[in-house]
Nucleic acid binder design. Structure first.
Lengths: 137, 137
DNA sequence: CTTGACCTTCCGGTTACTGGAAGCAATATA
DNA sequence: TATATTGCTTCCAGTAACCGGAAGGTCAAG
């Protein structure tokens, strides 16, 4: 065992993940550490790097399934950059779509709240709309 | 039993929800229909309206918890429009925040893919970034 | 020697449903 | 009338990506 091997707490700190999350990643087969005599998980430097990699990819909005793909590409020195780019491009499109949906949603809600006096009276266009008015474009 | 009472299939069609979803809404106490002799659920016109209300509110991005609040306001003839407006305004803010996050995400990914040749070579700035480059603003 | 920090496993909960199996009930067709 | 097809019922399990907490073992310090 090299002296750069670390316990889960250190790995968590170094990767920006929680120990809980790291154990979860082990459960689903992403990063599987060795154990020492007392049963503690032991992470190599390479494994800590993978954890960091996962933390960044998740923060960028990649799902676990996508992370699994990216990780295998990360580990494969002979991968084509096109493979990686395809995953990222798909993700960008999905994000753009989600943004559009949310903007449309926000627009609908804004129209409603602007028409709502927000006073003590029971008249409320928001409720009226939900109760039956047509909100189609 | 009035002749406007309907089975779950009709209620589903009229509200735009699935029968599964309607049963789930019953499980969590949102809309509780009567039963007839054979055990089938029977929805009144009022209850179908509530289901429609829920469908619209969910489509606008309100959570079930918020729907529960909105539904109680919908049922309360003496509610203040300010109460409803507060929920909607909070929702707009949350949506705006989510949009900003997604735009930032998209920007990061776009920068990466633009720098990626997308060819058969293993050189890939996306992987390089995930592997350790700093992506801070 | 005990306190506290760190580690282990296991179980349940989260959100808002969806899918499927097994089995009645009602209806349409042959 | 017999059968086939829907439609309805309940229950169980699974989804994504973890989080919280309980019960208990381990290790270093005072």
């Amino acid at each position: 065992m090299s002296d750069i091997d670390v316990n889960i707490g250190i790995a968590a700190h170094a990767s920006g993940l929680t120990a809980k999350t790291i154990r979860y990643y082990e459960d689903i087969g992403l990063v599987t550490p060795k154990r020492n005599e007392n049963g503690y998980r032991v992470y190599s430097r390479l494994q800590v790097n993978k954890l960091k990699f996962l933390q960044r990819a998740r923060a960028l909005g990649f799902t676990i399934v996508e992370c699994r793909q990216l990780l295998s590409l990360y580990e494969d020195k002979r991968r084509a950059s096109a493979d990686v780019k395809a995953i990222a491009t798909d993700k960008i499109e999905a994000i753009s779509l989600k943004i559009k949906e949310l903007e449309s949603l926000k627009e609908s809600l804004s129209v409603l709240t602007e028409g709502c006096s927000g006073n003590d009276l029971p008249d409320c266009p928001i409720i009226d709309c939900l109760a039956g008015a047509d909100l189609s474009d």
